[in-house]
Simulated assay, not measured.
Amino acid sequence: MSNADYLSYGTADFALAPYGPHWKFMKKLCMTELLGGQTLEHHLPVRCDELKRFLHLLYKKAKANEAVDVGAELITLTNNMISRMALRKRFSENEDDADKVRKIVKEMCGLAGKGNVSEMIWFCKNLDLQGFGKRLKDVRDRYDTMMEKIMKEHEEARRKEMGDGIKDVLDILLDIYEDENSEIRMTRENIKAFIMNMFGAGTNTSAVTTEWGLSELINHPKVMDKARQEIDMVIGKNKIVEESDIVKLPYMQAIVKEILRLHPTGPLITRECTEDCNIAGYDIPAKTRVYVNVWAIGRDSNHWENPLEFSPERFLIEEGSGNSQLDVREQHFHFIPFGSGRRSCPGATLALKVVHTTLAAMIQCFEWKLGMEEMILWKWKRDLG
């Protein structure tokens, strides 16, 4: 069993589960309830609150002329959003449950991505040559203990009807777990594994994409100025941009598309054949894995003009670009930052909401530029109130 399989409770999760009844049920559940439009709408106040907290923190640091690690603060922002949406808890400076889960999941993701010699060489499969066995068991046991505690707290609150009427992701999963007539019976391991997927796939990815976007904009001040002009013209200077405003900001949308083209959150996508097949005369046996280089596809000169140039204009309708109608979740195989097909990322909608709004708010509220020794200089532009 690979590191990732062990950490995901033997593929009891959603991301690594084999195609079959459980995976299809979880996919349907993700698209309709867990990450569906209604659930995202219910948690809109959570995302708005966390974004305001983030902006106030930057404002406080700027006012005190303090240095700030923007990348680290973006990760904290997305962690807080996921923590509150999934568990109704937020990261804080204290060692609370949400912070412990965040740190444990980060450690689990690091171990899952490491090459394990024991699984690569068949006669070493029973040997723990790199000491991963002990580390894997330790971190999964700690995660299991922490999640069991959080789940029992939720169950106790549900029995006492102590909730505020708005269900978090864990509540929805517990509803299915307790429903004896559910299409697929969900285990506690399934729930723990899915929450791990949310933290692992939903925090660093959005934060890193936003950080890449800010980096590109700092290096292309004309693009940033154009984005700021659009925001000021459409939104005005008396309120902070919101998720519902993004649809009215086509240049901002083009910027995010260009960021995803050059800096996809998943540079490599893995797919596996479910059965024997023949492609272009080649016999491909079942279980064969293929790795799709999304990073290279986004920079392919056969599909993109000046592929290494950061140019959001390539996605604008008024520029007459053939790429203006490209959507990040459609079947345009030269632009698949979230993958494609059945295994495409179910959290794409949430990720786009977070990246669009966060980056737009940072452009709107601050001036960003490179200064001496390539340090990022920024100052507050307007009062948040």
Rank of each mutant, 00 (worst) to 15 (best):
H356Q: 11
D49V: 02
L370H: 09
F333S: 09
K381W: 09
K222T: 15
E367F: 03
R289I: 06
L249K: 05
W122A: 11
K52C: 06
S83C: 03
W380V: 13
E305K: 11
Q331D: 14
Y177M: 06
K167M: 09
W304R: 03
D164W: 01
Q331K: 14
M196A: 12
F310G: 04
T265A: 15
E211H: 14
G163L: 04
K24P: 05
I184E: 10
E305D: 12
M147R: 00
T265Y: 07
A286W: 03
T357C: 12
T349K: 08
N3H: 08
L308S: 10
V247M: 15
G236S: 01
F310W: 06
T145A: 07
K60G: 15
E230R: 00
N278G: 06
D232G: 04
T205W: 08
D99I: 13
W122N: 11
K222R: 15
E161N: 13
K63L: 14
V169Y: 02
T288P: 00
H22Y: 13
E107F: 02
E309H: 01
L350F: 11
G322T: 13
L384D: 00
W23K: 07
R158D: 12
D171P: 04
T209C: 01
E183K: 15
N278I: 15
A112R: 07
T357I: 11
I191D: 04
I184Y: 11
F338L: 05
W380R: 12
W23Y: 13
F123L: 08
W295G: 08
S206M: 05
L58N: 11
W212A: 02
A351Q: 06
V247Q: 15
I191Y: 07
M375H: 15
S83P: 02
G163Y: 02
G163H: 05
D164E: 03
E272I: 08
D225H: 13
L260G: 05
V234S: 04
N293W: 11
S92G: 12
P337Y: 10
P18Q: 10
F25M: 07
K239D: 06
T32Y: 10
G115S: 14
G298Y: 02
E73T: 12
K134A: 14
R84P: 03
I363M: 00
K100R: 10
Y291F: 14
W368T: 00
I218P: 01
N80Y: 00
F194P: 07
L173M: 14
A254I: 02
V241N: 04
N3S: 08
K239T: 05
I176Q: 12
W23M: 08
K149D: 13
I195M: 00
T11C: 09
F366V: 02
A86L: 03
T205P: 09
A112S: 12
A64R: 12
V68I: 11
L55M: 10
M372G: 14
P337I: 06
A72P: 02
L214Q: 05
N219M: 10
G202R: 02
G371Q: 06
D128M: 00
K381N: 12
H220T: 04
W378I: 06
K114D: 08
G371M: 09
V354E: 09
C124D: 04
R53H: 05
G133T: 01
L214I: 07
E180A: 15
